[in-house]
Design a protein around this nucleic acid. Sequence first.
DNA 1: GAACGACGGTTATAGGAGAG
DNA 2: CTCTCCTATAACCGTCGTTC
Length: 200
Amino acid sequence: MTELWTKQKEIEFFNEARKFVTPEQLFYLGDDSHYYAYWPKSYMGKKSTLQSRNALIGNFTEKYSVDLLQDFARIRELYAVQGAICNEIGLTTQSPADVVLSKKRQREQSAKNIKAIFEVKMSIVWNWELRDNKLICLGDFKTHKGNPGLLRSDSMLKAIGKSINIRVSGYCASQIPIIILALQSPKIILQKLITFIMQE
DNA sequence: GAACGACGGTTATAGGAGAG
DNA sequence: CTCTCCTATAACCGTCGTTC
Protein backbone atom coordinates (compact mmCIF):
# COMPACT_ATOMS: atom_id res chain seq x y z
CA MET A 1 0.00 0.00 0.00
CA THR A 2 1.15 3.49 -0.77
CA GLU A 3 2.27 5.42 2.28
CA LEU A 4 -0.42 7.17 4.23
CA TRP A 5 -0.35 10.90 4.75
CA THR A 6 2.99 12.07 6.16
CA LYS A 7 4.86 15.28 6.88
CA GLN A 8 6.81 14.54 3.73
CA LYS A 9 3.59 14.75 1.71
CA GLU A 10 2.88 18.18 3.11
CA ILE A 11 6.38 19.36 2.27
CA GLU A 12 5.83 18.00 -1.20
CA PHE A 13 2.58 19.92 -1.49
CA PHE A 14 4.11 23.23 -0.48
CA ASN A 15 7.11 22.79 -2.73
CA GLU A 16 4.92 21.87 -5.69
CA ALA A 17 2.52 24.73 -5.09
CA ARG A 18 5.26 27.29 -4.64
CA LYS A 19 6.27 26.75 -8.23
CA PHE A 20 2.99 28.33 -9.28
CA VAL A 21 1.92 30.77 -6.58
CA THR A 22 3.42 33.27 -4.19
CA PRO A 23 4.05 32.52 -0.51
CA GLU A 24 1.21 34.89 0.36
CA GLN A 25 -1.22 32.58 -1.43
CA LEU A 26 -0.11 29.58 0.61
CA PHE A 27 0.75 31.02 4.00
CA TYR A 28 -0.59 33.53 6.44
CA LEU A 29 1.71 36.47 6.98
CA GLY A 30 1.55 37.41 10.65
CA ASP A 31 2.17 40.75 12.32
CA ASP A 32 5.42 39.19 13.44
CA SER A 33 6.50 38.85 9.78
CA HIS A 34 6.40 35.06 9.93
CA TYR A 35 4.76 32.90 7.29
CA TYR A 36 2.40 30.37 8.85
CA ALA A 37 0.43 27.51 7.33
CA TYR A 38 -2.11 27.93 10.15
CA TRP A 39 -2.38 30.48 12.91
CA PRO A 40 -0.56 29.07 15.94
CA LYS A 41 -2.72 28.83 19.06
CA SER A 42 -0.33 31.25 20.73
CA TYR A 43 -0.60 33.87 17.97
CA MET A 44 -2.50 36.93 19.15
CA GLY A 45 -1.95 39.40 16.31
CA LYS A 46 -4.23 40.36 13.48
CA LYS A 47 -5.61 37.43 11.49
CA SER A 48 -7.30 36.68 8.21
CA THR A 49 -8.59 33.48 6.65
CA LEU A 50 -6.70 32.19 3.68
CA GLN A 51 -8.74 31.16 0.64
CA SER A 52 -6.23 30.90 -2.15
CA ARG A 53 -4.85 27.63 -0.82
CA ASN A 54 -8.19 25.81 -0.82
CA ALA A 55 -8.37 24.68 -4.41
CA LEU A 56 -4.69 23.76 -4.45
CA ILE A 57 -4.76 21.57 -1.37
CA GLY A 58 -8.12 20.13 -2.43
CA ASN A 59 -6.72 19.00 -5.73
CA PHE A 60 -3.53 17.68 -4.19
CA THR A 61 -5.33 15.54 -1.62
CA GLU A 62 -7.69 14.14 -4.24
CA LYS A 63 -4.76 13.12 -6.40
CA TYR A 64 -3.15 11.62 -3.35
CA SER A 65 -6.31 9.61 -2.64
CA VAL A 66 -6.32 8.27 -6.17
CA ASP A 67 -2.75 7.04 -5.73
CA LEU A 68 -3.63 5.55 -2.38
CA LEU A 69 -6.52 3.57 -3.86
CA GLN A 70 -4.81 2.66 -7.09
CA ASP A 71 -2.94 -0.34 -5.66
CA PHE A 72 -6.18 -1.85 -4.40
CA ALA A 73 -7.88 -1.06 -7.63
CA ARG A 74 -5.22 -2.66 -9.78
CA ILE A 75 -5.26 -5.96 -7.96
CA ARG A 76 -9.02 -6.20 -8.51
CA GLU A 77 -8.85 -5.04 -12.10
CA LEU A 78 -10.45 -1.72 -11.24
CA TYR A 79 -9.43 1.88 -11.69
CA ALA A 80 -9.39 4.78 -9.26
CA VAL A 81 -10.87 7.72 -11.16
CA GLN A 82 -10.63 11.35 -10.06
CA GLY A 83 -13.54 13.73 -10.60
CA ALA A 84 -15.92 11.10 -11.91
CA ILE A 85 -19.15 12.08 -13.63
CA CYS A 86 -22.22 9.88 -13.73
CA ASN A 87 -25.49 11.60 -14.48
CA GLU A 88 -27.51 8.50 -13.58
CA ILE A 89 -26.64 8.97 -9.91
CA GLY A 90 -26.41 12.73 -9.66
CA LEU A 91 -22.70 13.14 -10.23
CA THR A 92 -22.72 16.04 -12.64
CA THR A 93 -19.87 18.14 -13.91
CA GLN A 94 -20.85 20.70 -11.28
CA SER A 95 -20.68 18.15 -8.53
CA PRO A 96 -18.53 15.19 -9.52
CA ALA A 97 -17.37 12.43 -7.18
CA ASP A 98 -13.93 13.14 -5.79
CA VAL A 99 -12.80 9.59 -6.49
CA VAL A 100 -14.60 6.42 -7.59
CA LEU A 101 -13.47 2.84 -7.96
CA SER A 102 -14.72 1.61 -11.28
CA LYS A 103 -14.31 -1.04 -13.95
CA LYS A 104 -13.76 1.70 -16.47
CA ARG A 105 -11.03 4.29 -16.52
CA GLN A 106 -12.70 7.30 -18.11
CA ARG A 107 -14.16 10.29 -16.35
CA GLU A 108 -17.70 9.70 -17.66
CA GLN A 109 -19.03 6.70 -15.82
CA SER A 110 -21.95 4.34 -15.99
CA ALA A 111 -23.48 3.45 -12.62
CA LYS A 112 -23.16 -0.30 -13.12
CA ASN A 113 -19.36 -0.03 -13.27
CA ILE A 114 -18.93 1.99 -10.10
CA LYS A 115 -17.90 -0.12 -7.11
CA ALA A 116 -17.42 2.63 -4.55
CA ILE A 117 -17.58 6.40 -4.25
CA PHE A 118 -15.11 8.39 -2.17
CA GLU A 119 -15.56 11.87 -0.83
CA VAL A 120 -12.19 13.32 0.14
CA LYS A 121 -11.93 15.78 3.02
CA MET A 122 -8.30 16.46 3.64
CA SER A 123 -5.96 19.32 4.25
CA ILE A 124 -2.69 20.19 5.93
CA VAL A 125 -2.37 18.56 9.35
CA TRP A 126 0.83 19.94 10.85
CA ASN A 127 1.67 23.58 11.14
CA TRP A 128 4.53 24.97 9.12
CA GLU A 129 6.52 28.11 8.91
CA LEU A 130 8.25 29.27 5.78
CA ARG A 131 11.54 30.78 6.83
CA ASP A 132 14.44 31.49 4.46
CA ASN A 133 12.70 29.42 1.79
CA LYS A 134 12.68 26.40 4.04
CA LEU A 135 9.75 24.70 5.75
CA ILE A 136 9.98 24.40 9.50
CA CYS A 137 7.47 22.19 11.28
CA LEU A 138 5.92 24.09 14.18
CA GLY A 139 3.86 21.24 15.59
CA ASP A 140 0.83 19.07 14.95
CA PHE A 141 -2.85 20.00 14.69
CA LYS A 142 -3.10 20.56 18.43
CA THR A 143 -0.76 23.53 18.18
CA HIS A 144 -2.69 25.55 15.62
CA LYS A 145 -6.18 27.00 15.38
CA GLY A 146 -7.26 24.99 12.35
CA ASN A 147 -9.92 22.37 12.97
CA PRO A 148 -9.58 19.12 10.98
CA GLY A 149 -12.36 18.67 8.45
CA LEU A 150 -13.55 15.44 10.03
CA LEU A 151 -14.32 17.29 13.25
CA ARG A 152 -16.23 20.07 11.54
CA SER A 153 -19.93 19.47 11.48
CA ASP A 154 -20.44 21.68 8.45
CA SER A 155 -17.88 19.68 6.46
CA MET A 156 -19.46 16.40 7.46
CA LEU A 157 -22.97 17.62 6.73
CA LYS A 158 -21.86 18.65 3.30
CA ALA A 159 -20.37 15.22 2.68
CA ILE A 160 -23.45 13.46 4.03
CA GLY A 161 -25.73 15.72 2.02
CA LYS A 162 -23.91 14.80 -1.13
CA SER A 163 -24.19 11.13 -0.22
CA ILE A 164 -27.95 11.44 0.27
CA ASN A 165 -28.24 13.17 -3.05
CA ILE A 166 -26.56 10.20 -4.70
CA ARG A 167 -28.69 7.70 -2.77
CA VAL A 168 -31.99 9.24 -3.80
CA SER A 169 -30.98 9.84 -7.40
CA GLY A 170 -32.23 6.45 -8.51
CA TYR A 171 -32.45 2.76 -7.74
CA CYS A 172 -29.09 1.96 -9.27
CA ALA A 173 -27.38 4.20 -6.72
CA SER A 174 -28.79 2.42 -3.70
CA GLN A 175 -26.15 -0.32 -3.49
CA ILE A 176 -22.98 1.69 -4.05
CA PRO A 177 -20.90 2.25 -0.91
CA ILE A 178 -20.02 5.87 -0.23
CA ILE A 179 -16.93 6.51 1.85
CA ILE A 180 -15.77 9.76 3.36
CA LEU A 181 -12.01 9.83 3.35
CA ALA A 182 -10.28 12.02 5.89
CA LEU A 183 -6.73 12.25 7.11
CA GLN A 184 -7.80 10.83 10.40
CA SER A 185 -8.85 7.52 8.85
CA PRO A 186 -6.52 4.93 10.38
CA LYS A 187 -4.80 2.63 7.92
CA ILE A 188 -6.31 -0.54 9.34
CA ILE A 189 -9.86 0.75 8.96
CA LEU A 190 -9.19 1.78 5.42
CA GLN A 191 -7.82 -1.64 4.51
CA LYS A 192 -10.71 -3.53 6.10
CA LEU A 193 -13.22 -1.23 4.51
CA ILE A 194 -11.87 -1.64 1.04
CA THR A 195 -11.50 -5.39 1.43
CA PHE A 196 -15.12 -5.57 2.55
CA ILE A 197 -16.37 -3.51 -0.35
CA MET A 198 -14.50 -5.63 -2.83
CA GLN A 199 -16.04 -8.84 -1.55
CA GLU A 200 -19.49 -7.60 -2.45
C1' DG B 1 -14.16 26.46 29.87
C1' DA B 2 -15.05 23.01 26.45
C1' DA B 3 -18.07 21.54 22.72
C1' DC B 4 -21.06 22.41 19.10
C1' DG B 5 -23.81 24.58 15.45
C1' DA B 6 -23.89 28.20 12.34
C1' DC B 7 -22.12 31.81 9.44
C1' DG B 8 -19.21 34.30 6.46
C1' DG B 9 -15.38 34.90 3.64
C1' DT B 10 -12.09 34.32 -1.16
C1' DT B 11 -11.18 32.06 -5.33
C1' DA B 12 -11.84 29.02 -9.39
C1' DT B 13 -14.67 26.96 -12.70
C1' DA B 14 -18.70 25.39 -15.37
C1' DG B 15 -22.82 26.37 -17.74
C1' DG B 16 -26.88 29.17 -19.12
C1' DA B 17 -28.86 33.57 -20.78
C1' DG B 18 -28.66 37.35 -23.53
C1' DA B 19 -26.29 40.75 -26.60
C1' DG B 20 -23.90 41.67 -30.72
C1' DC C 1 -21.07 31.79 -33.34
C1' DT C 2 -18.66 34.35 -29.74
C1' DC C 3 -18.35 37.28 -25.92
C1' DT C 4 -19.82 38.93 -21.50
C1' DC C 5 -22.37 38.58 -17.36
C1' DC C 6 -24.55 36.05 -13.82
C1' DT C 7 -25.50 32.00 -10.96
C1' DA C 8 -24.38 27.75 -8.83
C1' DT C 9 -21.08 24.82 -6.81
C1' DA C 10 -16.93 23.50 -4.85
C1' DA C 11 -12.66 24.05 -2.12
C1' DC C 12 -11.14 25.08 3.40
C1' DC C 13 -10.68 27.91 7.75
C1' DG C 14 -11.59 31.28 11.69
C1' DT C 15 -14.85 33.16 14.82
C1' DC C 16 -18.97 33.94 17.40
C1' DG C 17 -22.94 32.82 20.12
C1' DT C 18 -25.29 29.18 22.61
C1' DT C 19 -25.39 25.27 25.53
C1' DC C 20 -23.86 22.19 28.85
